[in-house]
């Protein structure tokens, strides 16, 4: 049985993420095991890795750094080993070179860019960007396959005040419009990240999770 680990580093709606992954896994021909874990050794054995994250960038980074050996295992498996990786919300933002929420905090640096505060052109727009928005795919990707985008497409659930501004347009795979472009999905090689919450995005989210569980980068 293949193994999908959802990393528990004290940040994130782990139960919700695990529920959605379990729901999708059960529909596959060979369902993988879904494991929520803080154990780097379990992550080392994983065939797929998911990094959730809710809260402030610096707190999440500190939480991840506080799990002894986790960062090293992630670098080893995701960067060197090519294991499919999905980061969600702050778990996606942590892929950036640095976060600029409150203080400047170095990120994992896997997707060059910085996490910046949203600055909608219309000052009347509320922050956080909280609710359902459609996506505009910038670059087709296996994880976005079968998900209708554009104004008549499916909706994703967002809740955030900061987003990852990538250095290269190549790594920005999907955007949402909120008084200007908001980064909705990033990726390169075996690494993918969403600013929105697939585990809370009903039809769109479950499709994306299914794509991730089937993904062979």
């Amino acid at each position: 049985m293949s193994l999908v680990t959802i990393i528990d580093y004290g940040a994130g709606n782990l139960r919700s993420a695990a529920n959605a992954f379990e729901r999708v896994a059960a529909t596959l021909d060979t369902p993988p095991e879904i494991l929520v874990t803080a154990d780097p050794e379990a992550v080392r054995r994983a065939d797929r890795i998911m990094l959730p994250g809710v809260g402030a960038f610096a707190d999440c980074k500190a939480g991840l750094d506080a799990v002894a050996g986790m960062r090293e295992v992630l670098e080893e498996r995701v960067i060197a080993g090519g294991v499919p990786f999905l980061g969600v919300c702050v778990g996606m933002q942590l892929l950036a070179s640095e976060g600029r929420e409150k203080t400047v905090t170095p990120g994992l640096g896997w997707i060059p860019g910085a996490v910046e505060r949203l600055t909608p052109s219309d000052p009347g727009l509320k922050i956080p960007h909280m609710g359902w928005n459609t996506l505009t795919v910038q670059k087709p990707h296996a994880l976005l396959a079968g998900i209708p985008d554009g104004p008549d497409g499916l909706h994703a659930y967002f809740v955030h005040s900061y987003h990852l501004v990538t250095d290269s347009a190549d790594t920005r795979l999907a955007i949402a419009d909120y008084g200007g472009p908001v980064t909705a999905a990033v990726g390169r090689d075996n690494i993918f990240g969403t600013q929105f919450h697939p585990e809370k995005s009903q039809a769109l989210g479950l499709k994306l999770i299914e794509n991730f569980l089937r993904w062979t980068p």
Binding site: H129, G131, W132, N133, P151, F158, D177, Y178, G179
Partner: peptide, 8 residues
């Protein structure tokens, strides 16, 4: 498009 009005 922007955010949709939520019905709760």
């Amino acid at each position: 498009m922007s955010l949709k009005t939520r019905l709760i």
